[in-house]
Amino acid sequence: MKILIVDDSAMSRKLVLKALPAELQAVVTQATNGEEALAAYHAGHAEVIFLDLTMPVMDGFRTLEQLKREDANAVVIVISADIQPQAQQRVRDLGAAAFVKKPITPEAMQAALYEVGLI
């Protein structure tokens, strides 16, 4: 499975990486903003995208909008500290398959992967 972790915080990316189940057998690519994420997606490095919302250059909302415009087939799981119902609804409307609040835990990761049918 090709996984892309997108977050401007190296610590947050590391937490997502650590929360991934070992049995997933994933090839992981990392990006620090939406532009890098789209480039990685176009290069074939993302079947599953863990996406932060608040980032410089291109935020998660704009990234989701672009993926939706392109009719992308990656599964997007948003991981954000912005847990307002409006933000959660907006990302769902833009095609996100799941929403997990920061900081992510292995249990929350497991639940999100189960919710989207990856485990």
Rank of each mutant, 00 (worst) to 15 (best):
L20N: 01
V78N: 02
I5K: 00
D52C: 04
M109L: 05
V76H: 06
A112F: 09
R62S: 11
I3L: 12
L118F: 15
R92Y: 12
A10F: 12
T54E: 11
G34P: 02
F50T: 08
A37R: 05
V57W: 00
P106E: 03
T32Q: 11
K18Q: 12
M109W: 08
V100Q: 12
M11K: 01
E65N: 07
Q25P: 00
E107P: 00
Q110H: 15
A39L: 08
H42S: 07
V6A: 02
K18I: 05
A112H: 09
I77A: 04
A87T: 14
L94S: 06
A39Y: 01
V57E: 13
L17K: 15
V78Q: 00
L38C: 07
S12W: 00
Q30M: 13
E36M: 04
A97Q: 13
E65K: 14
D7T: 07
E70P: 08
D59G: 15
K101D: 12
T32K: 03
E107K: 14
V16N: 05
K68V: 01
G117M: 11
L38I: 13
A22I: 14
V28G: 11
L113R: 04
P85C: 11
V6Y: 05
A31E: 00
P85M: 13
I49A: 03
L118P: 06
D8T: 06
Q110V: 03
V57Y: 04
T29F: 04
M1Q: 13
